[in-house]
């Protein structure tokens, strides 16, 4: 039964549908699908609108912010931002290589999610699939910020 349930969760996750399983440690076990992104630029609007601070347009800035220790989030298709608390067992979520390696990528992630005081959090237990960068918006917005590509300045 456990195998069947996990298979069903995987399929739903690959379809981009959030799936809830069980309560664990006060959280909810789920499979979520979304882009690993820079929470500061997305929430603050400091670099522009939400659609321009994800994907290929914002990839270099997303690397900068992750390396700078700004919280990395997982943005799902319904607009929920999950602050990443742990990544596949790695306790390092402050500027870590683990996070840099997946910035801007669309992941299917198995983990435990929590909600507190309006914010959502996720412990990513396993990356089920990595689809790479799927939001190809650089031809719409250029690099965001514009100085992200020095050759263009």
């Amino acid at each position: 039964m456990h195998v069947v349930r996990r298979f069903a969760l995987l399929i739903l996750g690959l379809l981009g549908m959030p799936t809830a399983d069980a309560i664990a440690d006060g959280g909810t076990r789920m499979t979520v699908t979304g882009e690993m992104m820079d929470t500061w630029c997305y929430l603050s609007g400091v670099m522009g609108g939400a659609e321009a601070v994800v994907g290929s347009s914002h990839h270099t800035c997303a690397l900068w912010c992750a390396a700078g220790g700004i919280p990395v989030g997982l943005l799902t298709d319904d607009g929920t931002v999950y602050f990443v608390l742990q990544m596949e067992g790695s306790p390092d979520v402050v500027g870590s290589d683990t996070l840099l390696d997946v910035q801007s990528d669309r992941l299917v992630a198995d983990g435990i999610v929590y909600e507190r005081d309006g914010n959502n959090f996720i412990i990513v237990e396993k990356v089920v699939a990595n689809e790479g960068i799927t939001v190809l918006n650089h031809t719409d917005y250029g690099p965001v910020p514009p100085f992200a590509i020095p050759e263009l300045n």
Binding site: S56, A67, H138
Partner: peptide, 15 residues
């Protein structure tokens, strides 16, 4: 160095 190595491998756009 960590940022530069990723840009060198995957480009500014990551593509």
């Amino acid at each position: 160095p960590r940022v530069l190595s990723r840009i060198k491998a995957e480009g500014y756009l990551g593509l």
